[in-house]
């Protein structure tokens, strides 16, 4: 494992912790898209079905469990917690995420590495992860104002994607048989989706101003 991959995993982990912290500390999930969180839960459940059949490392297994458990906890809070549920911006979170699920499933059935149950689920999870942030970005754009922790959450999530690209570049040059174009192409698409957010994030950072997205 190289430093970029590890740093990417850590920023991914930090993003989830920031989100849990926001929900726990403020007892509010305003500004957070429940649809994006449910898509991530689906992404992890689909990708990590290999958790009992495939062993890569203790690190991988623990991270898989942490990602599944933390994302399910977030979804549970947003749906089931009496106080948190009330702060959910339901009227702003109207992205039709079922289309994303359907499109990812169709694409996975067409483009995959092997026509097996696990490989198709894996490809599906990769495609779905690439677009899962869309409901969140649309929600932020609609509400205009982005609170501090929500901004940090999306920032760390974007940083994770950027670091994974560096990881692939590193692996491409250091590993003789490195080939994973499905993950790389999807990863590039996913990272590109953050470009607009990052632009305004750095603008607000540079001007020391509150993060605001144009309508």
């Amino acid at each position: 494992m190289n430093i970029f991959r590890f740093a990417g995993d850590m920023t991914h982990l930090i993003s989830i912790l920031v989100l849990l912290l926001k929900i726990y500390a403020t007892k509010s999930c305003s500004g957070i898209s429940r649809k994006t969180q449910e898509l991530y839960a689906l992404v992890f459940l689909a990708r990590y079905v290999d958790i009992f059949t495939e062993f890569i490392s203790v690190y991988n297994t623990i991270m898989k469990i942490v990602f599944i458990a933390s994302t399910l906890a977030i979804v549970w809070c947003m749906r089931g917690h009496r106080v948190v549920r009330r702060s959910y911006d339901k009227e702003l979170d109207t992205f039709r995420h079922y289309f994303l699920i359907a499109a990812s499933l169709v694409l996975a059935l067409l483009v995959h590495e092997k026509f097996t149950f696990q490989e198709i689920l894996w490809a599906f999870s990769i495609y779905l992860e690439a677009v899962a942030i869309l409901p969140q970005l649309v929600l932020l754009q609609r509400s205009g104002n982005v609170d501090n922790l929500t901004g940090q959450y999306v920032f760390f999530l974007g940083a994770y994607r950027g670091l994974y690209i560096l990881n692939w570049i590193y692996r491409y040059f250091t590993e003789p048989h490195f080939s994973r174009w499905i993950a790389c192409v999807s990863g590039l698409v996913q990272t590109a989706l953050y470009a607009d957010f990052f632009y305004y994030y750095f603008l607000s950072w540079k001007n020391n101003a509150k993060l605001k997205l144009p309508a």
């Binding site: 991959r5 995993d9 991914h12 990708r47 290999d50 495939e54 890569i56 490392s57 991988n60 991270m63 898989k64 990602f67 590495e113 894996w122 994974y164 990881n167 590993e175 048989h177 490195f178 080939s179 994973r180 993950a183």
Partner: peptide, 10 residues
């Protein structure tokens, strides 16, 4: 060329 993809990334 042997394709290696054991899904070792998260």
């Amino acid at each position: 060329l042997k394709l290696i993809n054991n899904h070792d990334e998260l």
